[in-house]
Design a protein around this nucleic acid. Sequence first.
RNA 1: CGCGGAGUGGAGGACUGGUUACCUCGAGAGCCUCAUAAGCUCUAGGAGCGGGUUCGAUUCCCGCCUCCGCAACCA
Length: 483
Amino acid sequence: MPKKGNFYITTSIAYANGRPHIGHALEAVQADAIARYKRGLGYNVLFLTGTDEHGDKINRIALQSGKTAKDFVGEISKEFKRLKKTLNLSWSDFIRTSDKKNHWPGAKKLFAELEKKGDIYKKEYEGFYCVGCEKFITEKELVNGQCPLHKKEPEKVSEENYFFRLSRYADRVAHAIRTGEIEIVPESRKNETLSFIKEGLEDVSFSRSEKTVPWGIPVPNSDQTMYVWCDALSNYITAIGYGRDAKSFKKWWPANVHLIGKDIFRFHAIYWPAMLMSAGLSLPKRLLVHGFITVEGNKMSKSIGNVIDPFEIADKFGADALRHYLLREIPSDGDGDFSWEKLKSRYNDDLAKGVGNFASRITNLLKGEKINKRSPISKEVRDEIKRMQARVEKHINEFRLHDAVSAIFDLIKFGDSYVNEKEPWKNKTKKISRDLAALIIAVGEGLQPFLPDAADKIMKAVPEKRGYILPKKIKPLFPRMDN
RNA sequence: CGCGGAGUGGAGGACUGGUUACCUCGAGAGCCUCAUAAGCUCUAGGAGCGGGUUCGAUUCCCGCCUCCGCAACCA
């Protein structure tokens, strides 16, 4: 396979305050599909994911459950790592922000670089601190001057923090976005970012007092810990060696893709480029922004109790079924909805009756044959396959994975009607066999990034030997689920 | 208040200033039997409301209604 160069893709790192839910699975699977696709094209792919483990919130949750923060995040990150097997992910590296060896040196170095540039300064920060909440609350949150939760007047507390001169970079960041130096997909997010910058950017606090937030990376020579965003964003460079392995860093940076959720795209579109500019590093090439998943039309939340567990889905339906749902049912660049009923319908209609039946059908028709790979495929079939491949490529580049998957299902539909039309059970010719083999192989290859298990099984059913395809009848890929 | 997005057949989703508005699921009819009671074909059914621009609007503009995001130290 020809090597086409390096391709570095990241997911966001999950905030380790709870177990993975279906939203995390969405992001992971989307990134995985892109990573696998690029790998299939011959790119040398680095696919990074991980967990964001610092912050006051985590510290408090951990203490509440009677654990140390360290133990707590250890357990959570294990759960996130477990997604790899459950969802059949192909990530190559997993970074934890509590990793003192791999993450901390780079994070500290980045902070120091910003400081060296004169972009970090000390400022008194005044805020309303609610003792009940143990945190600062904004003036807007106050109801009649009181904390709405604890019905108490917050204390006015001032704290000296380090600030990052974000304002200095507003124009340069806007320029980078406008010119496409950093590309934001979908375009609506790009416009949103630009109009947001236009309203003006203020400097941001980049540290907290060690007293209020003890669980974090210490800022050298101070009583402060690093603000979580400064800590978290730097994972994209620390994981590949920033601050500890210059050669590796040079090989992989800048990232080709940061895949993120719509809740955090501003941090990635504004803070992150500004930080990189300040540190004299190049900018990531693309930000792909996905949406959120609702459950039967409702926001997923712990209080409603409708949080969907990806492990449970994979357990009942299999990794491919969950992947297919996330990739096909949820528009990659928008919001989507989950329901068990829709999952079942996607499974039966698309996977069982669609891919599964098609694979059985074709391999059953071809089993035991010896098909010469060099004999020509009919133009009609060849064109249809090429069209599918072109559509997949286009849609993956546009971050419309649901459309990419559709393209493959359209080829299956074409294949089914082609079989009906040719009626090979009546008169099967070498020509038809060659066409059918080409179709099933194209489907198997096409599915590789999306349904890797099924794709593998399909490819194994049409093995190649010395220029001949030797099809074998395949076992049902997706047994129909009844009731 | 503000900013942004959206309202398309029973459900979900797409396209478009112009002869029959597209796709998937679902419903009905027919065909086929190689395949996981699978496959193919055909049919029924649609653009939130009101105005405007236009020869002509679902598509552009205005108003209204409804829904959903965002609103900066919250990770």
